[in-house]
Design a protein around this nucleic acid. Structure first.
Lengths: 354, 354
DNA sequence: ATACTTGTTGCATACGTATGCAACGTCCGC
DNA sequence: GCGGACGTTGCATACGTATGCAACAAGTAT
């Protein structure tokens, strides 16, 4: 009784204050951990709030504190299960610390996307980009506003941008060593885009290792990280007169496309006529339909490190950009001929250790 | 020159106003379409804003207008490519109308999730739930605040909740007819959860049709919409003495699990020893690795209808909840024996029309 | 008893934008 | 030249929460 009715509007701190017979500031403090308020007062306020179904207005709080607890996430290849998994991991971990994800499914390639620009207008606390690269202009604006920028599975030469990646060079070398040990003769690589530094790292490490062991050259095609693109790349490679007997793909998703083409269009038997190795170790790679040999790049770890970087940068705003790597290993399955030595059984998975 | 420097803070309307020699209200109006402001003034303001890199603070705008342009999206099975695709479609369409998605990867099942509760604190304009059902309490709160709630590929008996679904009953009937026409004798169904009304609709239509044609009974198992759950269900079915020769799965993702088990653990040849049909027609269903016969449920249409409902409800806040259906068709591929009649070639895809 | 510390509370204001209202100028018709 | 209509502008205030500051009470040390 006696409380003002705001009609369809949800109750505010002022309403609770009136009902509980305290000031609006007291209500605010009741919801602020560690604020200066007596236990009895806080209990009385929380009880009143619960009774009328009050929830703090986070928009108003954000305006006041200049902290939205919203993390911007731009992602392009959501059809690739690897990135879907990254989103899931990020969301679950951020929820645990009371933060949410503002999502934009961006166009692939350079992200001059206006949708991402408006991210900044929402006063996001940090910006995570996956499967897209930021434009220099976007990064400038973020730095100006003190918003940390972190790339996952991408890299950038723009100063001030942090990144979390898999062990790209090590992956290239280990896969090369694995395929050489498996007795393969003609090597090919299906990359993402020509400009992607992640793809280039993998390619360089792969081809360098093979060249160093006099098994070159490596024939390269680019699948643009898409299924169709990788299928076309595989079609081109397998149509060659001297067809490669080993293909290293810069992602599992592209490896799936290559498998499809090899089986359906060329009738090849994987692990016998042809070996294909991917990168990522997505869940599907372990399914019977693909049974893909691949170098792992765990999404959980990528998400964890990305959030760790963000937290560090928020804690100390002037700190330098970080570049972290997440450990992976070569998971041996059925799509590539297996060397006679070096297979270890670790937690029920077969890992190749050179 | 002459402008106050707010240090690391981004410029505000007040800053622009000072620089352009107008009032703060004028700046606000310059960014408001249709507001009362002279063309020359607006141009001058926009030019100044562009020069100093001003972006409107959408948090402040949201507080003032009580409209955040943020749509809450709770989703649980992001590892299922169908839902990843739904997210992508939703994001792209909402971006087009200047809105963004606040994402939470919820736990499966009932959504009493505290992370979703905090959604409401962000003053979201609408709430979309996929692969999760809302708690009654959550819906109450949404109705109280006038926030439309839309379910995608789920249904709910809670009043005030809208939903967009595929043609679940028709799918069940058509798949049943298709399998009967293909000469199958022993039918099984792998459902989602026992409580999911979508799964129950499909099951009821499927079993009713088969019973009506004296081909019953249908053996049912539940996979909980998970890969592992569906694999266990398939394992149970295929281990029966009188093994079914046709399995209808309530999602492509579960069908993939069943395919895996049939091939890897039972060495069955699909389309010959056993037929499996899914629902969704995700991209992977068309890939050679699965080549799954399935009843389609296009994510683009689901997203479109969901947004249409939201827009209608926002336009007329008191309007009743809607329940829409999205058209689908049976896409014939290789995992199920094909009847001799009824196959039509539509846009390069084989569709079965009874 | 006094001075001082510690904890609790309310007042006033800030965060950045939107908008009702009144004031002002301009242009028109008469 | 006058009255009115209309378009443009600024003033003042609202949106809901956080927080520095001062006021105050209660307890402690001297």
């Amino acid at each position: 009784m006696g409380a003002r009715d705001r009609g369809k509007q949800p109750p505010t701190e002022a309403d609770i204050a009136e009902l509980a017979g305290v000031s609006q500031s007291a209500v605010s403090r009741a919801f602020t951990p560690g604020a200066s308020i007596a236990d009895a007062t806080r209990r009385k306020i929380l009880e009143t709030a619960r009774r009328v179904g009050y929830h703090p207005n986070l928009i108003a709080r954000s305006l006041s504190t200049r902290r939205s607890n919203i993390i911007g996430l731009a992602i392009s290849s959501l059809e690739n299960p690897f990135y879907a998994q990254v989103v899931k991991e990020l969301s679950e971990r951020l929820s645990a610390s009371g933060r949410h994800i503002l999502l934009v499914a961006a166009a692939p390639g350079e992200a001059a996307d206006p949708a991402i620009e408006t991210f900044l207008s929402y006063q996001i606390d940090a910006l995570i980009l996956t499967a897209t690269s930021p434009s220099k202009d976007l990064v400038q604006q973020c730095r100006k506003s003190g918003v940390p920028v972190v790339l996952i599975n991408r890299d950038s030469t723009i100063p001030g941008v942090s990144s979390v990646r898999g062990e790209n060079r090590r992956a290239g070398e280990i896969v090369a060593a694995f395929l050489i040990a498996g007795g393969h003769k003609r090597f090919a690589f299906i990359g993402g885009t020509e400009t992607s530094s992640v793809s280039r790292d993998r390619e360089a490490a792969f081809t360098d290792y093979i060249a160093k062991h006099d098994k070159g050259p490596v024939i390269t095609r680019y699948g643009n990280y898409t299924f169709e693109g990788a299928a076309a790349a595989a079609r081109s490679l397998l149509g060659l007169a001297r067809r490669p007997d080993a293909i290293f793909c810069a992602s599992d998703y592209m490896a799936f496309a290559a498998l499809d083409v090899a089986k359906r269009e060329f009738g090849l038997v994987l692990g016998k006529d042809l070996s294909i190795v991917g990168i990522d170790d997505v869940a599907e790679a372990g399914h019977a339909a693909y049974d893909l040999t691949t170098f792992s790049q765990p999404p959980a770890a990528l998400a964890r490190e990305a959030i760790a970087i963000i937290d560090a940068q928020i804690a100390r705003p002037r700190s330098a950009a970080e570049r972290r790597e997440v450990h992976g290993e070569l998971v041996v399955r059925g799509t590539a001929r297996v060397p006679s030595q070096g297979i270890a059984d670790i937690h029920g998975r077969k890992i190749w250790v050179p």
